[in-house]
Design a protein around this nucleic acid. Structure first.
Lengths: 193, 193
DNA sequence: TTTATCACTTGACATTTGTCAAGCCAATTT
DNA sequence: AAATTGGCTTGACAAATGTCAAGTGATAAA
């Protein structure tokens, strides 16, 4: 139930057995069915969510009803609308499950209690935020500096797991292109090899 | 010399006069001339840099020698290659001055000493990182969900100062379009009003 | 088992954006 | 003061990507 979370934390900081036992008390397990919402736009995002099993997506819907994938969350990944979480304002995003999933939820109250009780976790989250910034910088650079084909190649290289697990129409959206364009790119790349 | 920095910090946390005096000791002032590098690709980014006056840019250069603007820094903004700063690896980015500028530099060593001596600054930087993530999420969404014209309109709205201060060819690069396309978009928008 | 839906691909055509070249004007350098 | 460079715009054409429709096969629902 906590395997993926403890492994993720263990990669960044060392916790004693007592600390680990205490840490678990701050999290609330939650199961989602495929297509079930964790967060719906207009609601406040009240939890940080860690993915223990399954697959989630965070996306927005524009004026025309078109969905734009902004993030996927495989096991080992956190997913949250950080703006809504921090400000308490209603979110512009949706989070739902692409497969039946198991999450560990951390409310803001518990987040702060945990930080107070386990100051090592400040370091864990600072590293997490920093890694998040680095990943976003890479993705931003990809988005503005490269065409669709190169963005797909970089995506395949960075996230080989994703291409197996996630529908191509959602990957296309994540890359900012249409499914037709992605299909043509894949055909072209397949012919090159 | 520290006005913009202290104002920026004061917006997020409260420091006593003693703490403020101590804080200043961790920073090294630096002046850059227009076009002078702060960071050149291949070098390690050793400092967090706060912009007291002037204007900087952070950019990469691709295989074809084309520059891609990733960030601008007006007074009140920090600029750093966070990956290189944290890992000590050579940077893929460049930082230089678009105008004569004054910076306050914070080395990694001083960064950690300051955190130890002034734990309030953990909160300041956590808020900074969080705000950074939020801004990048907005920008990513803009990049993948909207066409060039809409991205320019959002940029104008979010950063009215930038359009006055920054050459249009650099803004075009930041938006992931060519100067010609930006020029046509501006002409079209001017005709709508 | 049958029907419906979803994911994916392909063709034909439209739109957006890029490339190249040229010209103008302001700013900078000599 | 003159020459050079940089910033910006515009025209003509090319390339990349989007849109719409149709078809196939797998998966899910009835």
């Amino acid at each position: 139930m906590f395997e993926a979370l403890l492994q993720n934390i263990g990669e960044k900081i060392a916790l004693t057995n007592e600390e680990t036992a205490q840490l678990k008390t701050y999290f609330t397990p939650k199961k989602l069915r495929k297509r079930q919402y964790l967060l719906q736009e207009g609601d406040v995002c009240k939890n940080l969510a860690f993915t223990e099993a399954g697959l989630l997506r965070l996306y927005s819907v524009d004026d025309k009803g078109i969905e734009h994938m902004l993030q996927f969350a495989l096991p080992g990944w956190w997913v949250v609308d950080i703006y809504s979480f921090l400000t308490g304002e209603p979110s512009r995003f949706n989070i739902d499950a692409l497969e039946d999933s198991e999450l560990l939820l951390l409310s803001q109250e518990n987040f702060e209690a945990m930080m107070a009780a386990l100051p090592k976790m400040e370091r864990y989250f600072r590293i997490l935020f920093q890694n998040n910034i680095i990943a976003k910088e890479r993705r931003l650079e990809s988005a503005i500096a490269f065409g669709a084909e190169e963005r797909y190649r970089q995506f395949e290289q960075a996230y080989p797991d994703f291409v197996q697990r996630i529908p191509l129409n959602l990957i296309a959206s994540y890359l900012g292109i249409t499914p037709e364009t992605l299909s043509r790119i894949r055909r072209k790349l397949a012919r090159k090899n």
